[in-house]
Design a protein around this nucleic acid. Structure first.
Length: 604
DNA sequence: CTCCGTTGTCATCGT
DNA sequence: AAACGATGACAACGG
C-alpha cells in the first residue's frame, strides 16, 4: 500500500509536470508567429470564439461533476467514489451500459493482477449475465484496463457503428460520451482540471472495482486516455440522472464541433488499443505487477511525457520494447503527404490530433515528414535521435525539459502547419493562390536544408536546429560530436531558419505599418475634407458678416450730420472706435490734420 | 516575353 | 564577444 501511494505520488508529480509543460507549450505556441498575417488574424478570432465555447463547456463539465460527486459517496474501505445506495436501489439500473462489441481472449500472463477469468468469475458473481447485456449494468472498464496485455491492446478493434446516433441508446451512449470526452479532453485549458481529477482518481481508486464483461471489450471508447480513464472512474459508476445530463449535453457538442469526426470511432478505438493500451501499463501499480515490457526503466517519465505527446506512429513505436516494430516499415506505410497532420491520420479519423488534443497541434513538422519521405532509410535514425532524449533515464529533469522543448517545438509547428494545411485546403476552394505556392516553396527550402544536412550526415532535425533555445541547442550539439563542416552547416541552417522567421515578421510588420498608414491617411483626408468644408462655411459666414457690417456702417453714416445739417461722405470720413469705446469721425484724406478736426461724437 | 508578388537568403546594424 | 532580431537588398520562382 505504501508502495502504491509512492507510485501514485510519482504519477501525481508526473501529471503536474505534464501540466506545467502543457502550459509552457501553450505559451510558446501562442507566441509563435504565424506567417500569413490575414489568415492568422482570422484564426485568432476563431480561436477566441472556440476558447469562449470551451470555457462554457468547462463550466458545464464542472457543474456536471459537482452533480456527480453530490450523488456519490466515498467508500472508506476502498477509497472509491461509489453511487449512493439511495440513488440506485438496483445497481444494474443505475450504471452506464457499455456494450461489448467484441470478445477478446485475455492472455493468462497478465501479471499479478486478476486474470481475465478471475474477472469474469467475479463479474458473474456480481452481475448475473442476463442482466448485464442490455440492462444498464455499470462497467468500470478502466479498472480492468491495466490487466489488458499490450498485445491485446494493440489488436485493432473492429469498427464500431459509424453513426452512434443510429445505434441503440445503450450503444449510442458510449461513442457519444467518448466523443464528447475526447473533445473536452482535447482542450488544453482542461488539462489542469483533468490532472486534478486524475490525482483525485488515483487517490480514491486505489483498488479497482470488480471487473465486468465489458472488460472484454478493448474497444470501449472510454479506454483511451489518462484523462478519459479519470472520467470513467467517475462516470461509469455514476447514477443515471447524471448520465442523462451528460448524454443530453453531448450531442450538441458533438454536432457543433465534431462533425468532421462523425466517422472517427474507429480511430479512437484503434488509438486506444494501440497507444494507450500500452500506456496504461506504465501505471506503476500495474508496472510493478507486470514488468513485462522492458520499459520499466523509463516509462514512468517517458510515458508520462508521452501521455502529453500526440498519438503518432513515431511516438507509439518509440515506446515499442525491443524494436518489436520495424520503424522503417512503419514509416514507409505513412501516407506521403505534404501536410504533417495527415501523415499520421488514420483512414477513419479525420483529425486525430484534434480529437485528442484539440487543435491537431501534435505532429511532425513538414521537415520531419519530408525527411522521412525523402529518406525513408534514415527514418529510424531520425526517430532514434528525435526520441532518444526521452529515454535517457539518467537525467529526468533535463529529459523533461528537452522533451518539453521538443513538444513545444512540435506544438509550435503544429500550430503552424495545420494552419498551413488548412490554408492549402481552403485556398484550394476559395482560391488564395499563394498559399500553395508558399507551402511548396517552404518544402523546397526545407528539403534543401534537409538534403544538406543529410549530405553531411547531421543527426539532427532541421526543426530542432532552428527552434531550440540556444542553451538546449548547444547541449544538443555537445551530445553529437560534429565536425567543422557539420557545425558550420548546422549554424547556417539555424541562422537561415531564424532569419526566415525574422524576415516574415519584418514583412508582416511592414504590411501592418502600411495598413496603419493607409488608415491614417484616410482619416487625415477626411479631416482635410472636413476642414475645407468648414473653411468654406466660415468664409461664407464672414462674407455675410462683412456685408452686414458694411450696410450698418453706411446706415450710420447716412444718419450723421454736421452743424449745417449736411451728411458726411463715407469716402471722406471714416468711423473709428477708441479703446474706451468712444467713436470718432475721422477724415480719410488728411488723417494727420484730422486730429484737430475731430468732432466728438457721442458713444454709440 | 515582361511584370509583379512572394519568399528565402545575405549583409549589416543595433541591442 | 556572441547571439539575436530588424531590415534593406537581391535573387529565384511562379502566376
Amino acid at each position: 500500500m505504501t508502495m502504491e501511494m509512492d507510485v501514485m505520488h510519482s504519477i501525481q508529480q508526473d501529471m503536474n509536470l505534464i501540466d506545467i509543460l502543457w502550459k509552457q507549450d501553450i505559451d510558446l505556441g501562442a507566441s509563435r508567429e504565424v506567417f500569413d498575417y490575414n489568415h492568422r488574424q482570422k484564426e485568432h478570432e476563431l480561436q477566441r470564439q472556440l476558447e469562449q465555447q470551451e470555457e462554457k463547456r468547462l463550466h458545464l463539465l464542472r457543474e456536471q461533476e459537482k452533480a456527480l460527486l453530490a450523488q456519490l459517496q466515498l467508500d472508506e474501505e476502498t477509497g472509491e467514489y461509489v453511487p449512493r445506495p439511495v440513488a440506485l436501489p438496483p445497481l444494474q439500473s443505475a450504471i452506464i451500459p457499455l456494450e461489448v462489441s467484441q470478445d477478446v481472449s485475455f492472455p493468462a500472463d497478465s501479471g499479478d493482477a486478476m486474470s481475465f477469468d478471475e474477472c469474469l468469475q467475479l463479474l458473474a458473481e456480481t452481475f448475473p449475465v442476463g442482466e448485464t447485456e442490455n440492462s444498464s449494468v455499470g462497467l468500470n472498464t478502466t479498472e480492468v484496463r491495466p490487466m489488458l496485455s499490450p498485445e491485446l491492446a494493440a489488436v485493432p478493434s473492429p469498427t464500431l457503428s459509424p453513426d452512434p446516433l443510429s445505434a441503440s441508446p445503450s450503444q449510442a451512449m458510449c461513442p457519444e460520451l467518448e466523443e464528447a470526452w475526447m473533445e473536452l479532453l482535447s482542450l488544453p485549458e482542461l488539462q489542469p482540471c483533468l490532472n486534478i481529477k486524475m490525482e483525485d482518481a488515483v487517490e480514491t481508486t486505489a483498488y479497482p472495482l470488480p471487473p465486468s464483461p465489458d472488460a472484454q471489450n478493448p474497444n470501449c471508447q472510454f479506454y483511451q486516455t489518462n484523462s478519459a480513464e479519470v472520467e470513467t472512474n467517475a462516470i461509469n459508476i455514476c447514477p443515471v440522472e447524471f448520465l442523462n445530463t451528460v448524454e443530453a449535453s453531448v450531442p450538441s457538442m458533438v454536432q457543433s464541433d465534431h462533425l468532421t469526426q462523425a466517422d472517427s470511432p474507429q480511430f479512437h478505438t484503434d488509438f486506444a488499443a494501440e497507444s494507450f493500451g500500452e500506456m496504461f501499463y506504465s501505471n506503476p501499480v500495474q508496472k510493478e505487477n507486470t514488468g513485462q515490457h522492458g520499459l520499466d526503466g523509463y516509462n514512468s517519465d517517458a510515458m508520462s511525457d508521452m501521455a502529453s505527446q500526440p498519438f503518432t506512429p513515431a511516438g507509439l513505436y518509440s515506446l515499442s520494447p525491443g524494436d518489436a516494430f520495424d520503424k522503417h516499415d512503419l514509416m514507409a506505410e505513412l501516407p506521403d503527404s505534404d501536410s504533417g497532420i495527415s501523415s499520421h491520420t488514420s483512414p477513419n479519423a479525420s483529425s486525430p490530433g484534434k480529437s485528442v488534443y484539440g487543435d491537431g497541434s501534435f505532429h511532425h513538422s513538414d521537415s520531419d515528414m519530408e525527411e522521412m519521405d525523402h529518406n525513408p532509410g534514415s527514418a529510424e535514425t531520425d526517430f532514434s535521435e528525435m526520441f532518444s532524449i526521452n529515454f535517457e533515464p539518467d537525467d529526468l529533469q533535463r529529459t523533461l525539459s528537452v522533451s518539453a522543448l521538443e513538444r513545444s517545438e512540435e506544438q509550435m509547428e503544429g500550430k503552424l502547419e495545420p494552419h498551413k494545411m488548412d490554408s492549402v485546403e481552403e485556398c484550394g476552394q476559395s482560391g488564395a493562390p499563394f498559399t500553395k505556392d508558399k507551402k511548396r516553396r517552404s518544402d523546397a527550402r526545407l528539403s534543401r536544408d534537409e538534403q544538406r544536412a543529410k549530405a553531411l550526415k547531421i543527426p539532427l532535425s532541421v526543426s530542432r536546429i532552428i527552434n531550440l533555445p540556444v542553451d538546449d541547442f548547444k547541449e544538443l550539439l555537445s551530445k553529437h560530436h560534429l565536425n567543422d563542416a557539420q557545425m558550420a552547416l548546422v549554424q547556417d541552417i539555424r541562422r537561415r531558419g531564424k532569419n526566415k522567421v525574422a524576415a516574415q515578421n519584418c514583412r508582416k510588420r511592414k504590411m501592418e505599418n502600411i495598413v496603419g498608414l493607409e488608415g491614417e491617411l484616410d482619416s487625415l483626408k477626411e479631416e482635410k475634407e472636413r476642414l475645407l468644408s468648414e473653411k468654406v462655411q466660415k468664409a461664407a459666414h464672414l462674407k455675410e458678416m462683412k456685408q452686414q457690417l458694411n450696410s450698418l456702417y453706411l446706415e450710420v453714416f447716412s444718419k450723421l450730420r454736421d452743424e449745417k445739417g449736411n451728411s458726411y461722405s463715407p469716402s471722406e470720413y471714416s468711423l473709428q472706435q477708441s479703446t474706451n469705446g468712444s467713436i470718432f469721425l475721422v477724415p480719410r484724406v488728411k488723417k494727420t490734420l484730422a486730429k484737430s478736426d475731430i468732432r466728438h461724437m457721442s458713444s454709440a
